[in-house]
């Protein structure tokens, strides 16, 4: 970024050279609130080297005038860390879900007049414009008891020792930021406005993967049976259709499909064990 920011030398990295000082057209799907009709608005945004979708939305917020010259309101969107670790700024960019902070304009629209479309995620209810309500994704973490049942916060010594290989697996699983990408891209995960139906609708790859994460932990395994029971009901592990889009769109490259298979194995064993030894 610094490399190209000053434009005075060759960028260290060879990429299709984007033209500095150009303008890019943003087509933004806007909606004033739940139940309101959506509309498209377009904005022409001047691009500086290193611009990303966030910096362009910030520019639009300060200059909310459409390409038709109509004054409008700043676009509403969700963002926080801008480093792709908080998961807030997920949206559908040119038809695909991802974080907008890491969507570099030079990669998306290298030429003057290029267009970028921004839409809210479709699997969660829209609050306004590009901001959606992802409560269901968090609710699903409760559903799979995604925690270690510790005995309280008093000083009781260290946790279980762990082999570095297991830590390496758990660490990657634990980088899930509940951003919603895997759910947005999943053909089996669909919008469910009725909160009462959340517990029986597909939990999504992230929740299954979190169940695996905590089943792998020495103390977390205490709740393994409960987690598997929750995932063996409607909307659980069996509702996965193996489209495997989740693993393709996961910004943290979490091996979600491996988690699904691993939980599938645990569920098979759990079911057999239950059947033969009984609850």
């Amino acid at each position: 970024m610094t490399a190209s920011a000053n434009g005075s030398h060759k960028p260290a990295h060879t990429k299709p050279a984007a033209k500095p000082g150009r303008k890019v057209r943003f087509k933004v799907k806007r909606c004033d609130g739940p139940g309101k009709i959506s509309r498209w608005e377009t904005f022409e945004v001047p691009i500086e080297p290193g611009s990303n979708v966030i910096s362009c939305l910030q520019w639009i917020a300060a200059h909310p005038v459409t390409t038709e010259g109509v004054r409008t309101t700043p676009v509403v969107w969700d963002a926080n860390c801008l480093e792709e670790v908080c998961g807030a700024c997920t949206m559908v960019i040119n038809g695909k879900v991802r974080q907008s902070c890491s969507a570099l304009i030079d990669a998306y629209a290298p030429n003057p007049g290029d267009e970028i479309t921004l839409e809210p995620m479709t699997k969660f209810p829209v609050i306004r414009d590009l901001w959606v309500d992802r409560s269901r994704a968090f609710k699903n973490l409760t559903r799979v008891r995604a925690w270690v049942p510790i005995d309280g916060t008093y000083n009781l010594g260290a946790g279980p020792r762990e082999r570095p290989n297991d830590q390496a697996v758990r660490y990657v699983l634990s980088t899930c930021m509940t951003c919603g990408c895997c759910m947005e891209a999943c053909p089996q995960f669909n919008i469910e406005p009725d909160e009462a139906a959340w517990d029986t609708s597909f939990a999504g790859a992230h929740a299954i993967s979190q169940a695996r994460l905590f089943n792998m932990h020495g103390t977390g395994a205490q709740l393994k049976g409960e987690r598997l029971d929750a995932l063996m009901g409607p909307g659980g592990i069996t509702d996965c259709g193996n489209a495997q889009n989740c693993v393709k769109v996961c910004p943290k490259e979490i091996p979600l499909t491996e988690s699904i298979a691993a939980v599938g194995r645990s569920a098979t064993i759990h079911a057999l064990a239950k059947w033969f030894t009984g609850p």
Binding site: G95, K96, A185, P187, Q188, N190, G241, N242, A243, Q244, N245, K248, V249
Partner: peptide, 16 residues
């Protein structure tokens, strides 16, 4: 399910 192979034309999704 709601197939979305138009947006996500990955091989796995096509098979799905």
């Amino acid at each position: 399910g709601r197939p979305n192979v138009g947006h996500y034309p990955y091989p796995g999704n096509r098979r799905y």
